[in-house]
Amino acid sequence: MSADASARRSDPILVADDIYVRFDTPEGGVVAVDHMSFDVNPGEFVSVIGPSGCGKSTLFNVIGGLLTSHQGIVSVAGETISGPHQSIGMVFQEESTFPWRTVIDNVAFPLELTGMPKQKRVDRARHFIKLVGLDGFESRYPGELSGGMRQRVSLARTLASEPKILLMDEPFAALDEQTRLLLGDKVLQIQQQLKQTTLLITHNITEAVQMSDRILVMTYRPGKMKRIVNIDLPRPRTSEIVGSEAFGRYVAQIWADLREEASRGMRDQEDHVLHHEAPAS
């Protein structure tokens, strides 16, 4: 039983119970997610943090219903899911805008599927475009935008479907530090404004501490739950809070956890490389 179970304020909106994923590869099986359990309360911002390759995206795909070859149960508001669920919205790690649609048509995509009349659709889409700060770019194609702008389009598109739970897989990983901070602020602002239940996958500690109510720290291979950290920092949190002492303590604690895992991961990969290159040299 996880340590925070007693701290539950209300019925969780998302429950992941004993998730286990194993991939079979030519070099043998890889356990990507090893018996992870946690839950997320309505309106809560939870981050999942862990070294590269630990199984974060795999966990994300399980919760989003894209991966069905897993063991364990995911339930949304008490209902067990067995595929993509309409109350879960996903923002992917890779660039995922539709290059053949303009910004507004990208964002209106989920609304189009519900059969919403055109004018209403356009108005709704405009609202979310404004929310991510892209007003003025409605009729541009993604090819004409920067990487950060495209990620905001993806975010707006997912928000437009008004998911009860927002899943984000390192949406800003490919961006520079400044843009990433600004977008982080934006996401946080939107999350607070919409009271959006959010699960953010990241390997950036500062980002996680700044945004989250709770942080789930994962181990490197197999991807297990190492620790759950409650972040008791006052809100609203702007980029200034990053300088505070309490903030620093959280970062240091998680950094210590992750350093252990990351170095284990590096060693593992080095062994792997040496092992495979030995015969050739």
């Binding site: 219903g65 894209l66 995509f109």
Partner: peptide, 27 residues
């Protein structure tokens, strides 16, 4: 067609024919 675009379609619960007409074909 990029895998992630297909996944976007799946995450929006597209039917098979929607998946084709709205994602695969334009891509």
């Amino acid at each position: 067609t990029r895998k992630v675009l297909i996944n976007v379609g799946k995450s929006f619960n597209l039917t098979r024919s929607q998946q084709f007409w709205k994602i695969l074909f334009p891509a």
